[in-house]
Design a protein around this nucleic acid. Structure first.
Lengths: 339, 339
DNA sequence: GTTAGCACTCGAACATCGAGAGTGCTAACC
DNA sequence: GGTTAGCACTCTCGATGTTCGAGTGCTAAC
């Protein structure tokens, strides 16, 4: 990583300009716009070195240079300066979290996702909270008709999950009530991921005559726990269409198709490895999924209250305004933490 | 509409071929493939007439003809023969509704939407049931913490709606219970759209001391009733990208952007005017929204059980396989009615 | 009423060409 | 030794021209 100061400056200039223009950057442009005092020829020599070292790429002889993936990586790790958000953007964020009456988690997430895509002009991805980690609050079963009931599971975060289950005909309203009361009593205050094992061993013994009915209850709990059950929220999916690198329908298509496969997206986001300042940046092929290997993903885990609940991310082209995106994400995460 | 039999045949041929190939159809092609026994010259004369009458369009001198909107309209009204679905497709439909354990309305709709887009290769739109029309089943309020509670509203269709509401500190658990029991008693068996007025006049009087709390309850009911609260489900949104008429990013973009605006889509679907066989076809500019004026929408209302609950539709290019789409929709609607 | 023949039109595909941008290299300069 | 000017070279892009094929409209003959 021993780049001379001037090389760093040039790399930075190439990235800055390319991020803005999406056009290969030539030596003249840099000399004129970023390195007053040096001639294009000098820049050319330096750029040739940078290319050999892998930081820059020439699409063809005699076009300017564009940053390579290694170049971007070096930039975000070493060169990028923290940019502060413009007041206007800060105000927008503030407004969303202060003005709106956001009580429900889902609403908060939905607004956040819209906000992210609005501020960055890229696509936002948010992985919802893990039910697993939140504490059990209450369970309720409401009869719907003779053979079906609605099972409602409430977590203390205000997170709600419901499912229609079959009830045995033989179950009287009174019995049902007793069972529900019992279940509530047993599970009070527990974290949801500790419940499954407890339930299986103990409650089943106590209520063995209603096993069939309980199976469904367990199923709901089990489903809620399954990793891929975590919901993914998207915002600004059409923003990628504004990027010139997605001028060709094929790429757009594969990306949009990916956006419909929430389980894959959840995978992409479900990385607990925190980076510097809590923000993780995955550039190009550093992402696992083939469809996003021309994209970069900037993400961070967020908290609502005390616990880490999920991941928010912004997906844009590798030629992305990293500094601003990081700033936006940090700002938003900090607001979320205060709710 | 007094087209000669031969003109009808030619119009039909043009449409059939154009639907398949997306290329303007020439007189030679028709003579060879559809009208054995007539020469291209004859066909040309007839086509010239059809063009003058508005049924066909020439993109430029010396390309073949393509059907105009009027042509399509005439075709679906007069010429289109009912096509029966292939056994394979029928089997797929059957499988979805018989094999799967579909208990919840939302699940049913989600599967239906996937099914429609799979079978047609177009985009499917489904307007969810109107809560308004279903009967009230039960209302429940579960405390979440000291000042908030979860209000759950269940309709007899198994439809559930929940919202976090503020509870006054002063309200004891006991009082809350009494209120809930009372509300349930008063609203038992009523259709939801009759509730609002009843509540406002009567219940408020009985429970005047808890008015602030009830306001929130009313709000939830009110929200549920608002027309634009009806959920729209989409399937196969990326299917349009397969259509050659959407080769250009601009069109794709405006259409995809529209897909994110569910309230507009709901408008598009919320047309209770039934057509022949219950299927309504809107071609091109017959649709209100500008974004879909190069598209056609085939839709029908569907029932779940006895009542009409919503609309399902398929959106494709005007050059759409109308016969098959209509057949698919009819088949699906009939299955839904039997659930 | 139908058809064959023919001139005509238009767009798609392809080649050609020049302009412009940018490079790499060399030699001169400080 | 680092820096720069000069220059030949390369490559893309857009404009231009050309050809080819598909399809038409019209006329005259059947």
């Amino acid at each position: 990583m021993g780049l001379s100061a001037r090389k760093k400056q040039i790399l930075q200039a190439v990235i800055t300009d390319y991020v803005k223009s999406a056009q290969p950057v030539g030596s003249r442009t840099i000399a004129r716009r970023y390195m007053v005092g040096l001639s294009p020829a000098t820049i050319r020599n330096e750029m040739a070195d940078l290319e050999e070292a892998g930081y820059l790429i020439q699409p063809h002889t005699s076009a300017g240079r564009i940053p390579s993936q290694i170049g971007y990586r070096y930039y975000v790790d070493q060169l990028m300066e923290k940019s502060d958000l413009e007041d206007e953007d800060k105000a927008k964020i503030k407004q969303v979290y202060e003005y709106e009456k956001l009580k429900e988690i889902e609403e908060i997430i939905r607004h956040t996702s819209r906000l992210l895509s609005l501020l960055t002009n890229y696509t936002s991805l948010i992985l919802g909270p893990q039910l697993k980690k939140s504490a059990f609050k209450k369970l309720q079963i409401m009869p719907v008709d003779h053979q079906r009931g609605l099972l409602i599971l409430v977590a203390d975060t205000g997170f709600v999950k419901n499912k229609v289950i079959n009830l045995p005909h033989t179950l009287s309203a009174n019995e049902l009530n007793r069972i529900v009361t019992y279940l509530n009593m047993r599970m009070e205050g527990l974290t949801i991921d500790t419940i499954t094992s407890k339930l299986i061993s103990e409650i089943r013994r106590d209520l063995y005559q209603h096993i069939k009915f309980l199976e469904d209850t367990f199923t709901l709990l089990g489903d809620s726990l399954a990793e891929d059950e975590r919901r993914v929220f998207l915002g600004g999916t059409t923003n990628i269409l504004n990027q010139p690198e997605f001028g060709d329908i094929g790429k757009v298509k594969s990306l949009l198709a990916l956006f419909e496969q929430h389980s894959l997206l959840a995978n992409l986001l479900a990385r607990p490895v925190a980076g510097v300042d809590g923000v993780i940046i995955k550039i190009g092929t550093e992402n696992i999924l083939e469809e996003v290997q021309e994209c970069s993903l900037v993400m961070a885990t967020y908290c609502l209250g005390k616990e880490v609940v999920g991941t928010i991310g912004v997906l844009g082209p590798t030629r992305m305004n990293y500094a601003k995106t990081v700033a936006v994400i940090q700002q938003v995460v900090s607001h979320l933490g205060r709710l």
